[in-house]
Structures are given as structure tokens and as C-alpha cells.
Design a binder for these strands. Structure first.
Lengths: 345, 345
DNA sequence: AATTTTTACGCAAACGATTTCGGTTTAAAT
DNA sequence: ATTTAAACCGAAATCGTTTGCGTAAAAATT
């Protein structure tokens, strides 16, 4: 690849033809004689000729690559989503360039700039938990960079979005706990400025209301700094459990928070599900093995990735400008296990 | 980005200058007067000019991107490694293009071809579990594509490699079990053709020998088809446990196999660690929460990624051809938890 | 005042491929 | 015998940028 890098010029020179003839022969143009074609193709094959994609990109003004911006690659949900993205991209001949925002606004801005300046043909984006101002995204988008948001989406219109029905998922999870006999259900959620947080908390509240259970503000805790630090979780949990009217169950509305809540419970010897019922959003592939096995709301991450990539590539390859914007809503999966089912009753 | 895409030509036309002057002004060349520079830079900034990286790539014959080929992105070890790769790449101004081999030789070949034909500046590769013939890699490499192997490496010389000391890791794990009082330790390993498998089994055997324990071939099981199918695991486990001289402990030498062995034990009500002590290679971030918490040999995936990326970029940017090839060996971490410590003794 | 040097800029080629526009044969049709 | 139409191929422009070389004007030196 590096040194050899045979070009059309080399072929032309070697065969005593012009570059245009060689190019046409390789593209099987009708205005090249079969004989010439044969010679050219044979020579090209023997010398392992491959067209330089960069030269093509320059000419065609497209790079056949798409950028993906996620919080962290090393996060089950995102790596599963990237898996889906890659599968579609691979199918359609695109490559995937990844960038992380590390859940920070500045990193998100620089990641987007980086991708845009690398001339990707489009961008798939899940905004960071710190992002509440969408100017940088709007700017890029208005300069007609094809974009599709997934999971953590922006709150303005006119852009394709792929999400899960967070409200329904949280509703289902809460309803599930109610049906299993829990009466006083608390909720631990992610950053309060995230749309997915708002939606999930909404679903939680709606379920309580449907079953005429009281909604206590003090039963809702927001984890605003990502939940990576165990302390943040401890504080929230202590807040919840120190109430006179202790909750008997918990719905955790964030992937990363869920496992740390589990850690907190284990450290503090809180019996699940007897002392505290539990269901949480999680995409980790090991929750079935926990004791008790964890009931989860699992997002179809792979499918989300595939859908988003598909929409994006359609957008990129569309002849006329897109005027209608889809919001694809996938449903998450309630996997009932032991953490939400009291043993003695 | 798409429509606007202001170029040097546009600036030149607008300002009544030549493209060369504009280019030089923007690169702060000494042969452009301060006045002209100022005008050009001001105009460029106002109109948000960004050099077209594709045009640059064509000219400079480099794309400032590196390719990564791994088995599956949605695998803790690999996503952590990619995280490390991305961190270095980002630092040095490269972007990361990912491709998966899905643990299949053909997919590996096509992934490499794809990346090479996309003219990445270099490739980071962890070969698939199915790969035992390295011709496709050699070919690419001999055409002087800079490459660094990590984790699952090729078995020929003359290429940078970043690995963990698998033999020592397995030795340590086995020794740990021995020291905890286990006498008859079995080993479940990945594909027998993988170098990491061979090394790990070697470490296992060496540890047994050091403590003068007998080595039974029947105590070593190879999982040759990836271990994704639970059946494959069941069969191996049954094979081990149906022996008259049942093993009392197990070292699992593959990330993906470990969790499935745990599943098997849970399903078959095998008490860990009392009936069967256990330690396994794993990079999943939840093994501490299992019951019993799982003792693991954890690979420094993030560091592996960083080291490999660093070596690759040094290789890419090196003026003279590389003649000395490093094999960086990192050490894996033995994390002692409950699965390898018998309760009653 | 004449010469040299410096400064500041433009022209054009190059990177690798495609494609438009012609041009020259040769064959077919009139 | 003349016109027409295929068939085949080449020159040159194009994409956006950099850079070697040339040159005019200005400045510095004699």
C-alpha cells in the first residue's frame, strides 16, 4: 500500500495508453475495445491496482465514511450500538470513524469539529449528559451536514432521531414493581437536564398515578455527575433510605447508575428484593448472573445503531434535500428476573 | 460543511489574490507581507475556512487516520482497548476507523483490505480466533503498511506487538488456586490455535509442575468455536466434571468463556468456591458484583490500546524505516475475590 | 545614479482519479 | 463515391492544496 501504490498513470505508461483509456477500461466503458480492456484489466489485476479512495473523494466530494460521537466507547450500550452502526455501514460500503465526548460539552464540540473537518459524509450523535445548549449541533446541521441523533437526542425539531420509548419503559418498569406488590417506589435517575431522564421520570410518575400511589418528590434522586463516583450514588441512596417513609423498591433510570446502586446495596447489606425491590435500565451482559439476578429494562442498542445508521446513509445518498424528519421509536425490553420479585409474601 | 465548504480558491477570488498567496498567508509564510496575511486570515476566520483534509491527504499521501481491527466491538476487552487507542489517536491528531473481524478469517481479510484500500496510515490488529494462516497479514505488511498487533498476535517476527504476559498470568492464577488449597485444577481455554491460548495453557501447566501436581490432559478443555454457544461450554464442563477424579477448581483462560462457565455453574447449581474454585480471565466491569464475587485475571486493556497506538503512530511518523521491532509485554492483574477462596477449610 | 538585494506575490505543476469534449480511424449506409 | 455513424482513444479540466520557480517593485547597497 505504502510504497508500491500503483496508479492509473503507471498502468497507462506501462501499456502505452492514456490515463483516460485506462480509467475507462477499468470502469468497463463501452467506448473501449474488448482487447484493450482485457489488457488493461489483466495488468491491473496482476499489479494489484486499487483506485486511490482519497483521489476519488476529492473528485466526488464524498468520503464514504460516517462519524459517530458517543459518550464512551467502553460502555455496553454504546459499544452495542456501534456494533449495529458498523454492520450497516459495512453493508453499504462506509467506514465508521469514532469519537467520544466523554460526557463533556467541550469534548463534544471538538469531536464534532474534528469529524466535520475530516469531511465525513454524515454524523451519528448521542449528545453528552452535560449538553443542554445545542448551538454547536445546530450550526453544523444548518451547514447541511447530514446528522441523525440517537439515544440522547437534541430537543429541537427538523432532525432524524432514533430513540427508545423511555417514558413507556420507565412506566413498564414501575408498573412491574407495583404489580409485584411494592408500594413505595423510589427513582434514581441520571442528569436532570437530559431528555431521556425527563422522559423516564415522567414514565415513573405516570405509573404511580395510574395506580393511585402518591408521588413524593423526595423519592426522586438525580445523579448529575455521571454516577461514576460511588460517593454520588451513596449520597442519593442515603437520602432515599433515611426518610421516615422508606421506599421498598427502586427503579434506576440510568445504565451506569444501575450497577453502582447494586454495589451500594451490596456494600451496605441491603437485601434485594426483600428489603428493596429493584429494576434498572442496563445493557450489560452479565446482569443475569448477579444474585439476585437483576431485572432490567434493556434497550435494543444494536437495533438503535442499525436504524440510525440506515437513516443517516439514506439521508446522505438522497438526491433531494430531506424535508421530513422521522423520529423512530423503538421499544425497550423488560426482562423480569429476581431482583423485582419478593421471595416471601 | 456540505454546501458552504469555502476553499482557498474562494478566498483568493474574493480578495483578488492568487491561491498560492492565500495558502502561504494562512500558513504564516515569511514571504507574505503582514498586511496581506492579516487580510487573508481575517477573511478566512470570518468565513470559517477549514482546509479540506482530503485534498491534503492526496497531496501529502497520508490520511491522518488509523484503522483498528478487532473481533467484536461489543466486547469489554476490545472496547476498553479501543478507548485507549482513541485517547492516543486523539492526542496526536489521528482519527480511528474501526472494523470487526467477527472472529472469522474471511471477515478479517476483507476488513484489512477495506482499511488498506481506504488508505489509512497504519493498522492496529488483533487477529481473529479463526486465524492460523497469516499470509494476508504478511502481504499487507510487506507492502509496508505500518502495523502493530495487540492481544491476539501473529506468530512471525518483524512486527511490533503489544501483549500481556499470558503465561505468567495463567501461572499466577493457577498458583493462586494452589495456594488456596485446591489440588486438582482444571483449565478451560479458548481456541487451541491461538497463541494466547497456548501461552496461557503453558502457564497453567508450569504452575502445576512447580508445585509437583500431576498434569492431566483430560483436565484441559479447548473451546474452539468462540464460546458464544452455551452448548459448547456445557459439553466441556461435563467432560471435566464427569471424570472419576473430579477437579476441585477451574481456571478459565478466555474472557468470553468465563462468563458462560459461570452461567453453566449457576444453572447446574455447582457451588463456587466450595464445590469448584474458580478464577478466570475477564475484563467485564461487573464481576465484583457476582455471588460469589469472581476472582479474575484482568488485562490492562486500556493500556494495551494506548501502547499499541503509540507504537503505531511512532512507526507512521518515523523518518527512516523501522528495523527493530518491539514486543511490549504488559502484566495482567490478579484480582482476588471470593470465587477462589474456599469458605470452609 | 547604477547596481544588487530583498520583499511580495503570481504562475503552474503536482497529488490520482474521472469525465467532457474532441479527433481520428474504420466500417456501414446511402 | 460520398456521407454517416460507430468505435476507439487522447488532451485537458477538475477536485483543493502546496510549493518550486519566476518576476516585478521596493529597498538597500555601492
Amino acid at each position: 500500500m505504502r510504497f508500491e501504490a500503483i496508479t492509473i498513470k503507471d498502468i497507462a505508461k506501462a501499456l502505452g495508453l492514456s490515463t483516460s483509456t485506462v480509467s475507462r477500461a477499468l470502469r468497463d466503458s463501452h467506448e473501449i475495445s474488448p482487447k484493450t480492456k482485457e489488457i488493461v484489466i489483466k495488468y491491473a489485476k496482476e499489479n494489484n491496482y486499487r483506485p486511490n479512495p482519497i483521489a476519488l473523494s476529492l473528485k466526488e466530494k464524498r468520503s464514504s465514511s460516517i462519524g459517530v460521537v458517543v459518550g464512551e466507547i467502553a460502555n455496553s450500550f454504546f459499544s452495542q450500538a456501534i456494533n449495529g452502526i458498523e454492520s450497516i455501514a459495512h453493508e453499504k460500503g462506509y467506514n465508521v470513524i469514532i469519537a467520544q465526548n466523554k460526557e463533556q460539552l467541550e469534548r463534544e464540540i471538538s469531536a464534532l469539529q474534528f469529524l466535520a473537518s475530516r469531511s465525513v459524509d454524515g454524523i451519528l450523535l448521542s449528545v453528552s449528559t452535560q449538553t443542554s445548549d445545542f448551538d454547536h449541533i445546530k450550526q453544523l446541521y444548518e451547514r447541511s451536514m447530514p446528522m441523525v441523533c440517537f439515544d440522547c437526542v437534541v430537543d429541537f425539531e427538523g432532525i432524524h432521531k432514533v430513540i427508545v420509548d423511555n417514558t413507556k419503559a420507565a412506566f413498564d418498569g414501575t408498573e412491574h414493581l407495583i404489580k409485584k406488590g411494592f408500594k413505595n417506589i423510589a427513582c434514581v435517575a441520571s442528569s436532570s437536564n437530559l431528555s431521556i431522564t425527563k422522559e423516564r421520570v415522567k414514565g415513573y410518575i405516570e405509573a404511580l398515578q395510574k395506580y393511585q400511589l402518591p408521588v413524593h418528590e423526595s423519592n426522586i434522586q438525580y445523579i448529575n455527575h455521571g454516577g461514576v463516583i460511588l460517593e454520588e450514588i451513596s449520597e442519593a441512596m442515603q437520602q432515599l433510605l433515611s426518610q421516615k417513609n422508606k421506599p421498598d423498591a427502586l427503579i434506576v433510570c440510568s445504565d451506569r447508575v444501575t450497577t453502582n446502586v447494586m454495589r451500594y446495596c451490596q456494600e451496605n447489606k441491603i437485601q434485594i428484593p426483600d428489603q428493596l425491590g429493584m429494576i434498572g435500565f442496563s445493557n450489560i451482559d452479565l446482569t443475569d448472573l448477579l444474585t439476585p439476578s437483576l431485572s432490567v429494562l434493556r434497550q435494543p442498542a444494536y437495533e438503535i445503531g442499525r436504524t440510525a445508521a440506515d437513516l443517516l446513509i439514506k439521508m446522505i445518498e438522497s438526491k433531494r434535500p430531506i424535508t421530513e424528519f422521522e423520529t423512530v421509536v423503538l421499544t425497550s425490553n423488560l426482562i423480569e428476573r429476581n431482583s423485582s420479585v419478593p421471595k416471601k409474601k
